[in-house]
């Protein structure tokens, strides 16, 4: 079987997806990035190669996410794409008529507006990560519960309390205040869901025409409480597609497919699953050539430098 591999290395989790030539998902994998993207890519490659059917040949690789360039040099990518495009392409695969994509990941969130299968507008969260997965994680652990239980518990709320969602610092102090007043955990959790949906729509959704079908993807889409809060705020059904968590990786794989079929006979740059056993070393230094003092990162396999970047002028780039 011939297949395409997509890798989405986000701030919190790293996602892998393999699709076949008819764009159907074969296997997928999601692991925590844990601040070590290269090691996690290697671990994921090992896991994926074990799950793939015998005789699978990878004929195209796409990478996306905030570590897309790093991943690209480690595995040998044919196409390196931004997350907006990857998520849009992934969403269209499952909901071809989608007009709005809400995506909330570990540290960033995006809204993508599409018409007739084409992205027409988008926004990403700016300096503030309020209302992303990392905050929900943190709150769940403060209440010593599993993040998986967050959603179902929030759905049991009868009278949600109002939580300030503008800033996580305020949200947390509001939650603690409400909890000390005696409100139930369910009501506080659903209140938080509402605050997050409100904050998202007020920030990212500002001035955007949010039309159905609305697709909700990214890790946070697993949280049923947030899904319901979005449905209540938007007064429309919110579709959470299957594999919502690995949608960026699926999009990257689809883009790899598109790229390879447009470029005819060019072979893939994929280095093979063996990269999981290669030693990668990274180091960095401050360039002293001018007063910008750029931080240059060097990525090596053995003695060979495979990538070097980070400077403004490009004098170190490989």
């Amino acid at each position: 079987m011939k297949a395409y591999l997509g890798i989405d290395v986000g701030s919190v989790t790293t996602k892998f997806a393999v699709i076949d030539e008819s764009d159907q998902l074969v296997v997928s994998q999601c692991i925590r990035t844990q601040g070590k993207p290269i090691a996690v890519i290697q671990q994921g490659m090992r896991d994926i190669s074990r799950q793939l059917p015998e005789g699978t040949e990878i004929i195209g690789v796409g990478t996306t996410g905030s570590a897309r360039y790093l991943t690209g040099v480690v595995v040998g990518a044919d196409v390196v794409k931004n997350e907006i495009t990857a998520h849009a392409v992934g969403a269209l695969q499952y909901v071809p008529k989608a007009q709005t994509v809400l995506e909330i990941g570990g540290q960033d969130s995006k809204i993508i507006i599409m018409r007739d299968g084409i992205v027409v507008d988008f926004a990403m969260n700016t300096v503030c990560a309020a209302g992303t997965g990392a905050f929900l994680d943190q709150q769940a652990s403060r209440l010593s519960m599993n993040i998986e239980d967050f959603g179902p518990l929030a759905l049991q709320s009868k009278t949600p309390v109002r939580i300030a969602g503008r800033c996580t610092v305020f949200a947390e102090s509001d939650m603690i205040h409400k909890q000390q007043m005696g409100h139930s955990v369910e009501d506080i959790l659903y209140g938080l869901c509402e605050a997050m949906a409100r904050n998202y729509l007020n920030n990212l959704g500002l001035g955007k025409e949010i039309l159905p079908p609305v697709v909700f993807q990214g890790g946070v889409a697993a949280n049923k409480g947030i899904v319901r809060a979005f449905e209540a705020a938007l007064k429309t059904e919110v579709v959470v597609p299957p594999h919502h968590q690995v949608m960026g990786a699926i999009g990257a794989a689809l883009l790899a497919h598109e790229h390879m079929s447009m470029n005819g006979s060019v072979p893939t740059k994929f280095k093979g699953f063996g990269v999981s056993e290669t030693e990668y070393g990274t180091s960095s230094f401050e360039c002293k050539s001018c007063s910008n003092v750029c931080e240059i990162v060097v990525i090596k396999t053995g003695r060979e430098t495979i990538a070097r970047w980070g400077g403004r002028c490009g004098m170190w780039d490989v």
Partner: peptide, 30 residues
Amino acid sequence: EAGLVTRLEAFVDMLYRRRADSRGLARASV
């Protein structure tokens, strides 16, 4: 500069895809 680069790439991508679409070169595979 990651945030800036991602926005620029996404914006340029969006414009290319719109143009390809308006010329009837829409992605057959996707």
